[in-house]
Design a protein around this nucleic acid. Structure first.
Lengths: 243, 243
DNA sequence: GAAATTTTATTTGTCAGACATTTAAAAGTC
DNA sequence: GACTTTTAAATGTCTGACAAATAAAATTTC
């Protein structure tokens, strides 16, 4: 692990990079202890403050964890799917909001990916996840539910659908696509009739998952995508005429 | 933006969290300038070093950028798809290698997601991306290509396929799934006959994309998944009998 | 001799102050 | 008015110090 001493700025980034590369390359395995900050400072010929800034960068990506005290230090962290989920959701949310991604583009991506899951979900769903889906459908039918709560329940329903595929890699990749759309969905006002329509489609999808029919689930998702886009179109045309 | 002064450890993480929340909530918009480090130190009642550690955490996630000099400072960064790609690839790669994800699980996720892209790619592919796919197929047929170069070309081919959908959200989500598999694929030794088989399937997929037939592309991808899994199975059984 | 307690050493977390470097704006010069 | 010089503000880095946590070693107690 070496850094470039000719570039006296950005030292902390270089240090982070060097250590990150060592982790990715497998030179530092999970739970391995890094040298102490003082030792790293000597190795890289920089001050302890600079080393610390570099380590904080790695901590922000959950690549290391630190522990105080004797025999403490910085340890290579086992990157858990859970840790990765939340980062993925934050990143995806900001990507959508900062890059003016259209509702249609985000929606298309989300449903294309969900349809990819559906056949696997139908084949493997556990009773637990099916129960979650049914429970969320029930919640969505409750009167007096705010639009935001309705959207949150919608996300929970789709999460259960995705998780039914029992493939953590798929769940991880989809977490971003599904949850990042929530702020966009929150802009929609759902009338009682809108909710009924969505609820019926959710039931249709849940039924397909229960009976193990992947193609029915895919068809249900396609119909749901259609409906979602229609609602969004209505919102935007209404906004435009109002403004 | 407030932090908890009762918890005198983890201050830099709290500061990062507070600022990150402000960005996600939209209180700090793109290109907004944060207060100077000295001002933040006073606001949060901590030292400048602690503020800096917090800011480095945000920089590691590409949420802010810094600029030296008068009228410099920390600015909210527009999170670009490009920045997000590389983070996504690093994270996905580590997730697979650190969590003992099986080849089959990763492969299943990857091809399920790619098949989700295929119909869109067939409908929208540009001449440019088709040319890239053809060029990579040609490269894959060259004699004397190392296995690693073959894998790299394979990734480039699939990237072009995914990008053909012209949906940046899809491209972003898939970057991780496709590229993170490269280390796994690198464990495979490709015989001349293996390469011919893969090449033929790639041609079949490219043809389908060219003629705009999504279903043919999906079928080609399914066949390619089958072939990939078979090769991996062979490697692992050979390893096992050898060991 | 074993258990409980105290001490010690190590390591991270934070702070304060200093200087170097970069950079844009202000001031000065021709 | 255009060019040069100065100045001020900001980040980047360094040094040295102390606080707090923690495990191991040393000591005391029974």
């Amino acid at each position: 692990m070496k850094i470039d001493p000719n570039n006296p700025a950005d030292l902390s980034a270089q240090i982070a990079s060097a250590i990150r590369d060592a982790i990715v390359a497998g030179d530092l395995i999970v739970d391995a202890r890094l040298p102490s900050e003082a030792e790293l400072a000597e190795q890289f010929q920089v001050s302890r403050a600079t080393v610390r800034e570099g380590l904080k960068r790695l901590a922000a990506q959950s690549l290391i964890r630190t522990q105080r005290g004797a025999s403490g230090g910085a340890f290579v962290n086992r990157l858990s799917f859970e840790d990765a989920y939340s980062q993925q959701v934050t990143t995806s949310t900001l990507l959508l909001s900062m890059n003016a991604v259209s509702f249609d583009t985000a929606c298309e991506a989300r449903y294309a990916l969900e349809r990819a899951c559906a056949p696997l979900s139908a084949a493997r769903r556990s009773a637990d996840q099916l129960a979650t889906m049914r429970a969320e459908i029930f919640r969505q039918g409750q009167p007096g539910l705010t639009d935001e709560a309705f959207c949150a329940s919608d996300v929970a329903f789709h999460r259960a659908l995705v998780d039914s595929a029992h493939n953590p890699v798929l769940s991880y990749q989809l977490a971003g696509a599904v949850e990042a759309m929530q702020p966009l969905m929150n802009m929609i006002t759902f009338t009682a009739r809108d909710r009924q329509t969505i609820l019926a489609l959710h039931s249709r999808i849940a039924d397909a998952i229960e009976t193990g029919s992947g193609s029915d689930a895919v068809a249900g998702l396609a119909a749901l995508e259609e409906e979602t886009r229609k609602l969004a179109r209505d919102v935007f045309t209404r906004r435009r005429t109002k403004a």
